[in-house]
Design a protein around this nucleic acid. Sequence first.
DNA 1: CCAAATTGGTTTCGTTTGTAACCATCGAAA
DNA 2: TTTCGATGGTTACAAACGAAACCAATTTGG
Lengths: 151, 151
Amino acid sequence: MEADTLELESFLPYRLYRLADAVSREFSRVYKDRHGLTRPEWRTLAGLGQHGTMTATALGEQSAMHKTKVSRAVAELERRRWLTRKPDEKDRRVEHLTLTRAGLTAYREMVPLAKAFERDLLGRLNASERAAVTEGMAALKGALDRSTTQL
Amino acid sequence: MEADTLELESFLPYRLYRLADAVSREFSRVYKDRHGLTRPEWRTLAGLGQHGTMTATALGEQSAMHKTKVSRAVAELERRRWLTRKPDEKDRRVEHLTLTRAGLTAYREMVPLAKAFERDLLGRLNASERAAVTEGMAALKGALDRSTTQL
DNA sequence: CCAAATTGGTTTCGTTTGTAACCATCGAAA
DNA sequence: TTTCGATGGTTACAAACGAAACCAATTTGG
């Protein structure tokens, strides 16, 4: 291989992105085809389903979304009446978000599908491959944290 | 952990996406900050730099981009005079794309930066972690190919 | 107590994206 | 050779996005 050439197919950022995109696209069927949700909306639903009640800021932190994404996702889920906002008593800038019964129903419907998706995907791997996936992701995350922090 | 709850932080599609996004964002400095390129434009440049001459379709296949992305990226690189189009002799629908001297210069400038980025990132890992990354990604890709094909 | 800086969240604006429609050309089949 | 489906590539349109400006409420520091 030539030294002044980059082989895109084996370039880590490219491979990783492509992989994540493919997995994510595949999984998006669960929330997109089924309920017409966008990814931020799905993540918002998942965050609230998991934690019960959260603020928009907390949602953004948990699921790594920009505040504008959170804002729009929350607005849409509210329009669907899948969540409600309750102003904080002490700090009137803050809103506490909670799923409605309808939102919770949708969430509960999707959780098993999400789990099945993950199980199916990992089920195609043998134990050592699964271990490699886990270890590799953790290691990369660690490396990334180290490099990002050092800025 | 409750059975009817999904822990987003450890959910594979989410973790993988987040990881790829972080790596990709970090790397985008190389082409975005430096030359104001978008990702499709960078991939186009990388494809042509690597292969010399390609058609738009081939570019799309190599770097997993939708044809509209390719079309726009090519148009922009042409506007910059970083590539030229040459119509195919036999099939007048097809265009052969080649980097100009200026495009090649930009490419040659970025290749070492890309390699350094990858080397730095992987350099933070020990040998077994690196192996895990490689093996894990290959395994996941395999699993994904198997599931997507089966549709 | 007041001005300035900060924070939670929304809105605006320009850019990027995906889907679908589209145009031109080509190949195969009638 | 004419027609019809497939293919290479572009364009139009609407949705999604990020950055920055913005509003309101809160904290900080003089």
